[in-house]
């Protein structure tokens, strides 16, 4: 087989990705029912957290906490929740594919296995996010009233969201690949979701963490995925974009490199696994 020029390979993969996106989009109808269930949980959650923060602001007799007014805080939680509730468990899918041997078969198809997974993930994630964001916004408006989002800040936030989706994909793929070595990756994924929610500022912005914890949280890849975009969306301008992106890129390089290495090593184990 003649080696393809590297750019051509990339273009080819791009085309395949697009094809996957297209196919998966048509499948999303089935997901929406499941997502609707999550919708109920989301609304209840936002309601309760709104109440909690309302009581907090009252107890502190404060206008702003961590730089946010109460309505803003409610919207902060809405955004973080929308991010978190739109999660897609690719780890389970990859884990399954490894165990059933489908991974080995998928490797036979051109376009790469991970490209296929990325396509599926992106479509599902985007649809879910659209839903959770919309529903969350409606709930938040009902709870705390509408707020003004500065267009540049909003756009910047969406960019960061996109990056965050990619970053999460990389992380979760790494977890799924653990199937080559471990009997059960679902508990690792589970721990990941919980720790990232806590240290990523899901319920309480990182600004309000005690200093020691805050410094740890800022270094971890969870902050740019959850706290970052939410905070950015509520900012006055897009000035926070650069630091957020930088943080994303930094995390991406570290995580991405490790996962890439893991993937290479994992591929060598495919035959050993008898897949």
């Amino acid at each position: 087989m003649t080696p393809r020029p590297r750019l051509g390979n990339l273009a080819h993969r791009g085309r395949v990705l697009f094809a996957h996106l297209h196919v998966n989009l048509r499948d999303q109808g089935a997901y929406l029912g499941e997502v609707a269930l999550g919708g109920g949980i989301l609304v209840v959650f936002l309601f309760i957290l709104g109440k909690l923060w309302e009581a907090t602001y009252r107890a502190q007799a404060a206008e702003t906490l961590g730089g946010l007014t109460w309505p803003q805080m409610t919207w902060y939680v809405t955004f973080t929740e929308a991010m978190v509730m739109s999660r897609v468990n690719v780890a389970r899918r990859i884990d399954e594919d490894v165990r059933t041997g489908d991974l080995a078969y998928a490797l036979l198809r051109p376009g790469g296995y991970l490209t296929a997974r990325l396509g599926a993930y992106l479509t599902e994630r985007l649809v879910r996010f659209g839903f959770t964001l919309t529903l969350g916004a409606i709930a938040a408006t009902g709870i705390a009233g509408p707020i003004a989002i500065h267009p540049s800040a909003g756009a910047a936030a969406l960019l960061v969201v996109a990056g965050a989706f990619l970053l999460e994909f990389v992380i979760v793929t790494g977890i799924g690949l653990g199937a080559f070595w471990m009997e059960d990756t679902s508990s690792i994924y589970f721990v990941y979701t919980r720790v990232s929610m806590l240290l990523g500022g899901l319920l309480i912005p990182i600004e309000l963490f005690p200093d020691s914890i805050a410094s740890v949280a800022r270094v971890l890849p969870f902050a740019p995925m959850i706290h970052g975009p939410a905070r950015l969306a509520l900012a006055d301008d897009a000035s926070g974009l650069l630091p957020a992106m930088a943080s994303l890129v930094a995390s991406m390089s570290v995580v991405g490199a490790s996962v890439a290495v893991t993937y290479r090593v994992a591929l060598t184990r495919v035959t050993v696994h008898g897949g």
Binding site: A59, R194, L208, F209
Partner: peptide, 24 residues
């Protein structure tokens, strides 16, 4: 283990919260 972690995360959240806000 995952259920323990999940519960612990919630208590950890509350710990974080009460570090900053004495009571609610």
């Amino acid at each position: 283990f995952s259920f323990v972690v999940s519960d612990a995360m919630w208590v950890a959240f509350w710990w974080l919260y009460f570090e900053r806000f004495p009571s609610v």
